[in-house]
Design a protein around this nucleic acid. Structure first.
Lengths: 248, 248
DNA sequence: ACAAAAGTGTTCCTCTTACACCCATGA
DNA sequence: TCATGGGTGTAAGAGGAACACTTTTGT
């Protein structure tokens, strides 16, 4: 007995950006709508994997297409494999859209972090994509809402354990921008004095001596990420805090 | 242009067990060897996903076949998608073994935790599988070594943040068994007094009043896991410790 | 002068760490 | 009685949490 396998594998990327106030994610409109499926429906950028491509390569391809950027921070989250996660009209649309014939589509979720700036925003706008405040999103096509929620949960965990925050901040940033990012991602508010103490004490950021200009209040100093200090701390990490910050 | 998709998806499971001394993983011998591929080659238990089956369902099926148990703790790790991760003789073997025709096999890693006891050991032995000390494993077929390493890294992270340890311990266990498990998984040695203080102080385990019998030393008390206490702590978790135990 | 956000110190308390000896049992 | 692993307390230090006012700038 020989069974012809016939499963397509796709990647879907939750691309996060931070505008200084809130966490945003890149959404695109469904193209080539068919009956019952509107062109207004929003989705995460995604693609089918090509034959001689790994999943991270496919995800990078999606990112380059949708943002114009390469070398983006990218991390795999979960796999969504319900046999009927794509079916009926949605399956019809997907097969037409991607030019494939398949009975099943399994997708791999990724999240990506980009530094929002006017350049990337105008690029994505030209592409017809939108940066939408994560908290305001109520529905996406298929199971993309679930993929997004999973990506966000992963980001929330990572930002408290690794320096991914710096992937979302501009190269030079103020301490308060950094704190706002933390608060926007985790939904937790932090005491500003304690935050400064912890961050500055860690040596993970270095002051530049440059200050904000033309702001109607005391200008904030700009800092940069100190990669060297982090790598050193990284090594000792597993030894710290008794059983590594374990809290029941 | 319509492309026939032709990718097979498999699951491979690193099934961990703890015998009181060291961390073990369940390995099976390759069956139906062909040229150059020995029947002595060891691999992780795995399977192709069936047409109307999710990945976790497939992983549970593998576990039930290889251990005879259902309701096992199971968690997805990463996806291994290098286009040539299976090729040549290995691909020939896989297609013959699973009765499929495919040009590519992508696999999803899982790790599973079981309570080792004479029953399960005799079951797995009858099946021709072996419980091998994780530290002693030098090679496995294809990229299974990498899948195992990834599973272990995930377990090491999880055991310090969630109560998965109790999935590996018998229902009644001594505090020193618990500590040995920690040390075996993480490779870190912990001061016994401090361990007891932290564990008992958390309320996560409850003494049973029962003691070891026929041991040539002071008999140890048995404890059981206290699920209620954990769930309560779980809720507050994200608020604890400033930015949740964040250490640069 | 005022509005707006930046920046700064101290105290209390909890948790982590390091460390050494007696206890109960079976052989 | 001896070998084996079980079980216990304390002191010092580090880090987290809570808290309010002054500074600098543009308007």
């Amino acid at each position: 007995m020989t069974i012809e396998t016939n499963t397509a594998i796709s990647v879907d990327c939750a691309v996060f950006g931070f505008d200084g106030r809130s966490l945003k994610v890149l959404l695109i409109k469904r193209r080539y709508p068919i009956d019952d499926l509107s062109a207004e429906d929003l989705k995460l950028p995604g693609a089918m994997i090509l034959e001689n491509e790994t999943l991270p390569e496919a995800a990078n391809r999606v990112l380059e297409e949708s943002t114009g950027l390469s070398d983006i921070y990218l991390k795999q989250t979960s796999i969504f494999s319900a046999p009927d996660r794509v079916s009926g009209k949605e399956m019809e649309w997907i097969c037409r859209f991607h030019g494939i014939a398949t009975r099943r589509v399994v997708t791999v979720g990724y999240y990506a972090l980009v530094k929002l700036n006017p350049g990337i925003v105008s690029y994505t706008t030209r592409k017809g994509a939108k940066w939408v405040e994560v908290d305001s999103i109520r529905s996406l096509i298929m199971d993309h809402m679930e993929i997004l929620a999973d990506a966000l949960a992963n980001l929330q965990r990572e930002i408290t354990h690794t320096p991914v925050a710096f992937e979302l901040l501009p190269r030079k940033f103020t301490i308060n921008q950094f704190q706002s990012l933390f608060e926007a991602v985790t939904g937790i508010s932090i005491d500003n004095r304690n935050f400064r103490k912890k961050i500055l004490g860690s040596g993970i950021i270095t002051p530049t001596g440059e200050f904000e200009k033309n702001v109607p209040h005391k200008p904030a100093q700009y800092y940069i990420f100190n990669k060297t200090v982090f790598r050193k701390a990284e090594k000792d990490k597993f030894k710290l805090n008794f059983i590594n910050n374990w809290t029941y």
